[in-house]
Amino acid sequence: MTKIVYQGRSYERRDDETVLRCLLRNDVRAPYSCESGACQSCTMQATKGVIPSSAQEDLKETQKVLGYFKPCVCKPEGDLEVVALDDAHQQKQQLTVVEKSFLNDEILRLRLSCDESFKYHAGQFINLFKDDLIRSYSLASLPDSESMLELHIKRVPMGVVSNWLCDDVQVGDPLSVAGPLGECFYHETENEEGLLAVGTGSGLAPLWGIVRDALTHDCDKTIILCHGGVTPELLYYVDELRELEGAHDNFTYYPCVSTGDGSDLPDGFSLGFPNDVAFSKQPVLSKWQVFLCGHPDMVNNTKRKAFLMGAALKDIHADPFLAASRA
């Protein structure tokens, strides 16, 4: 008999019982459907203990790293502490604004102090609170080398939170955040051929983190980043990305502009949507990892197309609601 600790309460698990059955027997209301490891509707996160690998079969590599598992097919050898996904990492903490600068007319860069106790993967996001309002912002910083969190905030017309951050919040102010959250980050997979990152607007934030994360971990696979904006002025970090490109033979950066006929396009810019440019540069995506962030329509269409072009579903990373709730 082993113990299952769920939301802080301890339950005795019978030897032949799955984690899900144990919780249900104890009247815990947990969502589930197929009870055969297929539908993933019961997925939980283990915070302590050893998960049998069979209970993580066919989850994304990034989910496995975070301790996600399927309780309906999980019979652990020892004790396990688990939480429901909704409750994972929702604890708020206060971080102080240490830098505030505009990257262009519509995107604000905010840097927040953070110490080593804030563990995250480049590309994950945090939830930021203003009274009862919650907005999700991707992390653009690198956890190992930068002792602060970097957010790229797009000013949304009439957006309560984004305008407050742009106009009212000052250096030295505390902000209430929860996280890190999300599965959009780099984790090396077996036999991977390359990394394709596609983003629009402030969707560059997680990609800026993910690409640098891969490069600093000596990823020698082909890495392609396509960043799109309506006009050249709406792109940012162009010089920084070109510098990164110059320093790494395996990394190519394509700034993309979606309007105009191309006649007044600055040197080195591509005409078109970043997803179209990406597929023209890399039409075969079998064994590629794909990272998407930005406009929800772009993300959803590109996800489908990347899958049809050969990328495995578990190698396509995007936090779709992130773009939808971005403000």
């Binding site: 197929c34 055969s36 297929a38």
Partner: peptide
């Protein structure tokens, strides 16, 4: 994709509750 998997599992006579 999870639904497709449940469907394939069922068609192959594997464990399912559908």
């Amino acid at each position: 994709a999870a639904k497709q998997k449940a469907f394939l599992t069922m068609a192959l006579g594997g464990p399912n509750n559908y």
